[in-house]
């Protein structure tokens, strides 16, 4: 059984839409990518769709060269992968056994979106859920969608959001 354990993914609505659009575009293959954010902020900011090198409806894997460039680039910007997302194209938006055994970023929010026929959109507008995966243990967390991080309790809010139209 999973519990929310008080954890929350706070994410901008435009980033949720980017994930869903990428998943639709690559359907029936799985889509995957990262949303990077400043180290220590837990704030997803920079949307980075990745190529699924497996080009498969049941598996995803970043290309190894792309992976190195991605992590170098994040390092240079003092970013971490705040969100790691991928789609399930025939099953629910829940980590599979493979997802759990291969999860290697204990601090990331693993976001899954389902594009299956019977997908059931939730409050995010999509069949999209978020999980922590640490040492084989899956914990679902709430997804709180916001228009901007400006007024959300995400720590340092001294930098206004780019899309804030106040």
């Amino acid at each position: 059984m999973e519990s929310y354990a008080g954890r929350v993914l706070l994410i901008r609505a435009d980033l949720v839409e980017e994930i869903a659009a990428h998943a639709r575009r690559d359907h029936p293959d799985e889509a995957c990518g990262v949303i990077a954010g400043p180290e220590g902020s837990d704030r997803p900011e920079r949307f980075i769709p990745m190529l699924n090198a497996a080009r498969s409806p049941t598996f995803y894997e970043f290309d190894s060269g792309d992976l190195l460039r991605l992590y170098r680039d994040m390092d240079d910007r003092n970013e971490v992968p705040v969100v790691i997302y991928h789609s399930h194209t025939a099953t629910e938006a829940h980590p599979s056994r493979t997802d759990i055994s291969l999860a290697s970023e204990p601090e990331a929010h693993y976001v899954l979106v389902s594009t299956r026929d019977q997908a059931e959109p939730n409050h995010t507008g999509h069949d999209l859920r978020s999980f922590r995966i640490v040492d084989g243990v899956v914990t679902e967390e709430q997804v709180e969608v916001v228009e901007t991080y400006m007024f959300a309790h995400t720590g340092a809010d001294d930098v206004p959001d780019r899309d804030a139209s106040v």
């Binding site: 992976l67 992590y71 493979t98 291969l102």
Partner: peptide, 25 residues
């Protein structure tokens, strides 16, 4: 993987980077 696997040569002042695959099902 494209350079000899564990026998891949490491030169002086090389940087070795370890990254787990980002993958799943």
């Amino acid at each position: 993987r494209f350079a000899g696997g564990l026998n891949a040569p490491v030169g002086e002042n090389s940087n070795v980077t370890i990254l787990p695959a980002v993958a799943g099902g």
